Amino acid sequence: METAYVLVKSVMAHEMDVMSELLKIDSVKEAKGTFGVYDIFVKVEAKTAKEVEDTITKKIRKIKHVVSTTTLSVIPEQDKK
């Protein structure tokens, strides 16, 4: 299982719209609103790194009112649950 965390910036006052759309994506396991530079903290899990990449580039970034994303990839050797 591959995991990445995505920091999402959205258009002001549309955070809840974006979060609602994020939670419809199968690979999105969590989405939490945050204070600060980024508006939403998202956990993405998929079977392969390619699936994680596709989720971010083809789904998350295409959501209306998403301004930008920053992806934090998990180092597999340090992913001890």
Rank of each mutant, 00 (worst) to 15 (best):
A49R: 08
E51H: 07
P76L: 07
T3W: 01
V37A: 08
H14R: 14
R61S: 13
Y38K: 05
L23R: 12
E77A: 10
M16D: 11
H14E: 15
I60Y: 13
H65F: 15
V67F: 05
E53K: 05
T71F: 10
L7E: 04
T3V: 14
I56Y: 07
Y5C: 04
S27V: 00
D26E: 15
P76N: 07
I75T: 13
T69F: 09
E77D: 11
D54V: 00
I40W: 10
S10C: 15
E2Y: 15
L72H: 01
D26F: 07
E51D: 15
V74G: 00
G33F: 11
K9M: 11
V66W: 06
I40K: 06
L72Y: 09
K29N: 07
L22N: 01
T57V: 13
T34A: 15
R61N: 14
A31I: 05
V37H: 08
A13Q: 11
E30A: 04
T69H: 11
D26W: 08
A46K: 05
I25L: 08
L7D: 03
K43C: 02
S27C: 09
V37G: 00
H65M: 06
Y38I: 08
M1T: 10
T34D: 02
V6C: 02
F35W: 10
D17T: 06
E53T: 10
H65W: 12
I25M: 08
T70G: 03
V66A: 11
K29D: 08
I60N: 06
K29R: 15
H65Q: 10
I63M: 04
K32A: 08
A46L: 11
S68G: 10
